Simulated scan of single mutants.
Amino acid sequence: MNQDQILTNARLVLDDEVVHGSLVIKDGVIKALERGPVSLPGVTDCQGDILMPGMIELHTDNMEKYFQPRPKVSWPGRQAALAHDAQMAASGITTVFDAVSIGDVDEQSMRHGALDEMVSSLADINDNGMARVDHRLHLRCEVCHPDTLARFKSFMDSPLLGLVSLMDHSPGQRQFASLDAYRVYYQGKYGLDDASLEAFIEKQLANSAAYSSAHRRAIAELCSERGLALASHDDATVAHVAESLEYGTRVAEFPTTREAAEASHRHGMAVMMGAPNVVRGGSHSGNIAAAELVRLGVLDILSSDYYPAALLDAVFRIAAMEDGYDLPRAVATASRRPAEAVGLDDRGRIAQGLRADLVRVREVDGHPLVQRVWCAGRQVH
């Protein structure tokens, strides 16, 4: 049996309040909570710092950059996965659903070729006890790609899999409802001349017409059979939301408009927005600002997306906003609410009997700094 760890003199972020207190950790779980400090040999004095639940990240493609740190440069899988894992721990993220893509509009993308290695590398560091934090798998399914359904079937029974999102980045809808915006984005991204761009658009439209609806329905049915949490992606209209509800979707990832976000929230889907959207003051693609959804009270979950350190920063920013959330509600967007959305009932809160996933945070000049991180009671940063 492991010896008790006692953390004292901390501001504990609980479900509905922040209290000055102490907690006891034993065998990876929170054994007890007490108000006020304690004086015992060997206790850890948190010096009045904030102690909050470890953050739960549902959607990050951060891992990809470690597998391909430069164009056409591949990195060994275990080393790449461990470097990514270390960054998650340092950011205060103790459970991460690593998002890997099935299908890509860019046929030259590394995503297709690296998919198997990324998944096997995550399993490797988990199974060998090398990971600092708890890694799960989030399959991002590009439904307009011809091979998506077959590739999904090859991964759908992985024990790592906990979340599936359905995406369609074809032109003329959702994130790219404006064809002009689509042309600007992909012409700049891939350096296409006008003729090549038009051929690219024509191919994406044909693929969407041929595959999107059938793949969306088939994957949703397979997820329902397996009890897998399902997420929509870039819903823009009430009709999109209705379709997502039809498929039993639990999470509305990055709705692009106020009407889609409000409809999703109203019908019980957890609305997720990017933490970079909060930190930068708006969407980089001109969609709805996360801060506006906070003021409307319909933002449920924050995701670091492509920048892990943004998650903690965004939590404290929305807690400091005029008409923002109080600290417990802000913290819940990165802990309790994502846990609830994917059915993890053993974490996401500071409460007796739950996993001791914890982050000690000190505010310096208005900025939250990670001091210590525990995952299942083990200090990992």
Rank of each mutant, 00 (worst) to 15 (best):
G348L: 01
P159A: 06
Q187P: 03
S285G: 06
R378I: 14
D357S: 05
N62E: 04
M55E: 06
R337L: 14
V359D: 00
A123P: 03
V184D: 13
S335V: 05
P328K: 09
E246A: 15
D168M: 14
L222T: 02
L344M: 13
S121K: 00
A177E: 15
V143E: 01
A90Q: 13
E246G: 07
A341D: 02
C141Y: 07
L163D: 06
A351I: 08
P338N: 08
I350V: 04
V164S: 07
V73M: 14
A181R: 11
D147A: 15
L344K: 02
G172I: 14
D305K: 06
I125L: 09
S109Q: 02
Y185M: 14
G36L: 08
L40T: 15
E221Y: 08
A177Y: 10
R349P: 03
A314R: 00
L205E: 10
I125D: 00
S208D: 11
E322M: 04
Q108Y: 12
P328H: 12
V315W: 01
V370L: 05
A334Y: 00
Q108L: 04
L139I: 09
Y66C: 05
A81N: 04
R336E: 08
S224A: 15
I50Q: 08
R174E: 02
A90P: 01
G377N: 06
P368L: 07
P146A: 09
V43M: 13
W374I: 14
D15I: 10
Y185G: 04
N207Q: 15
R250H: 10
V271C: 10
K189F: 04
R337Y: 08
R360I: 11
D326F: 04
E64K: 08
A376R: 13
G377Y: 03
D193K: 04
A210I: 06
A239K: 12
A150H: 08
A123E: 15
N287D: 15
L296P: 00
D313N: 15
A83I: 01
C223M: 06
R295V: 10
R136C: 10
E17Y: 05
P41K: 09
G48R: 14
D345W: 06
V143K: 00
D235K: 01
H367A: 15
I350P: 01
A131Q: 00
S283M: 07
L296I: 07
D116F: 05
E17D: 12
V73R: 11
F200P: 01
V361H: 00
A220I: 03
H138S: 09
A334T: 11
I50L: 15
M130S: 05
A220F: 02
H138P: 02
F152R: 02
G297M: 11
D127G: 13
D157L: 06
L12T: 08
V359Q: 04
Y66P: 01
A291V: 15
I102Y: 09
S22G: 13
P159M: 10
K65C: 03
A263H: 09
S304M: 06
T94S: 12
E117Q: 14
R70S: 15
R111C: 06
G42M: 07
P37Q: 11
V361G: 04
G172E: 02
M118H: 00
G113A: 13
A177P: 05
H138V: 03
A270N: 12
